[in-house]
Design a protein around this nucleic acid. Structure first.
Lengths: 236, 236
DNA sequence: TGGATCGATCTGTGATCACACGCAGCGGCA
DNA sequence: TGCCGCTGCGTGTGATCACAGATCGATCCA
């Protein structure tokens, strides 16, 4: 489903905890700024503290979590500055990946993208937030995988993990976020057509537009809810 | 000295081990492909296994190490494909950082860069490899820090950690690598002048040239020593 | 004498225990 | 009655122990 950063052949407990937390972050079940403790997570997943610690350490290294000084672990809070930076880097890297992908276009890729975009469109109106986000992510990563550059894919994956929690939380909170995703599917269509004719510039242009629109909307939402403290339940 | 990715206020043992391993990687004391065990490292640094495991987990998450299936940890071996990918991404990100830095130029920055470039030049002829690499890295990161973008800096830092071990090892192994660094100092001079007149294009151009020359040389070295097995002593 | 098999050892992984420390809540003192 | 200090408690961190499995070497048999 999602791309794995450092795959381990045998499925270990630490790996399972890591994926669980990662999924929770991507689906917005762990919101920006939320804190958690090692012991609570260990109890929640039914293991000892050790695998949890290693999983948290990985997520910290990937920039998805931070460790407050002598305090518990928490999801990195999103700030306007951070959003600007993330968007800037993402535009560069994802644009590069999309350009590379145009050299590896085949019929199956176009069909997959078309199908995923349709799935996303159909999930918007009923506001099935999880499905929208999943289809959107799968759409983008289908392109990035087609770039056939593991290093690049890994970095992009890391950046999505950093902005994912906030994005997911935002989609849940605001009904008008649907408008952004609806317009996203239109841009996606333009992207697919550019991809079909292997138009690197066109693909990059559509992708950039997609990202910057989302970022612009996120920024408005972010400044509107800037100081609102969040305290969600620890669900894992 | 070097930029830290995820700083923790209180210096913990795990943090110390992490920095030690990181330094060993950057200085080439741990060469590409070398394997290590948790217990051996723990003995070497005089601690228990636990801090070592967490430090290794971090480095794996950062893409500096990998874990062979059911085997020990090892430094990711450099391959031609990997080198091409890393260079491509680095050109994009470091170029972006350098462009951003041109908007934050001041007299101190120019002086620092000039000094570091001189230090590097003076360390080449006596082949003080460590000093050359340190000055070179400090030169580059002085620029990247001036971009004032933590996210960008963090990613660049990660990429240097991935290519550092191989670079350091190469400089040690080949005397003619000095020629590359000597030419590098010339390009650095051009870069400094472009930086002084806030010429973003000029800075990016010089930087790209610097990186691609090094990559080209590395590629020759890599294909020449492709299948040579390395087995260095575990020094930590 | 050569090859196959068995076992000892080493390795990563997970669990449990011990400890220092920060924080909050309660009680004592002025 | 209000303020200050102390003491549990929870928390992250590190050490130690237990276990499964893979690897490599030695020994034994044909």
């Amino acid at each position: 489903m999602t791309t794995s950063i450092t795959a381990v052949d045998v499925t270990t407990v630490q790996e399972r905890v890591y994926r669980e937390l990662r999924g929770a972050l991507q689906q917005g079940r762990l919101v920006s700024g939320q804190s958690m403790t090692v012991r609570a997570l260990a109890r929640a997943v039914g293991t000892s503290e050790m695998p949890v610690r290693e999983a948290l350490r990985r997520l910290i290294a990937e920039g998805a979590l931070i460790q407050a000084p002598n305090r518990s672990f928490q999801v990195i809070p999103m700030t306007p500055d951070r959003l600007v930076e993330l968007t800037r880097v993402r535009v560069a890297l994802e644009g590069m990946a999309a350009r590379l992908a145009t050299t590896n276009v085949d019929q199956e890729l176009i069909e997959t993208l078309t199908r995923l975009n349709a799935e996303m469109r159909e999930a918007i109106e009923p506001t099935r937030a999880d499905d929208v986000l999943r289809a959107n992510q799968e759409f983008h990563f289908t392109i990035y995988r087609a770039a056939k550059s593991p290093q690049l894919l890994e970095l992009i994956d890391m950046l999505w993990l950093r902005s994912g929690p906030y994005l997911a939380d935002m989609l849940r909170g605001r009904m008008d976020a649907r408008e952004i995703f609806r317009r996203g599917t239109v841009v996606h269509g333009r992207l697919i057509r550019a991809m079909a004719r292997q138009d690197a510039d066109g693909v990059a242009r559509a992708l950039t537009l997609d990202m910057e629109r989302t970022a612009e909307f996120s920024m408005k939402h972010l400044t509107a809810t800037a100081t609102r403290p969040r305290r969600a339940a620890i669900a894992a």
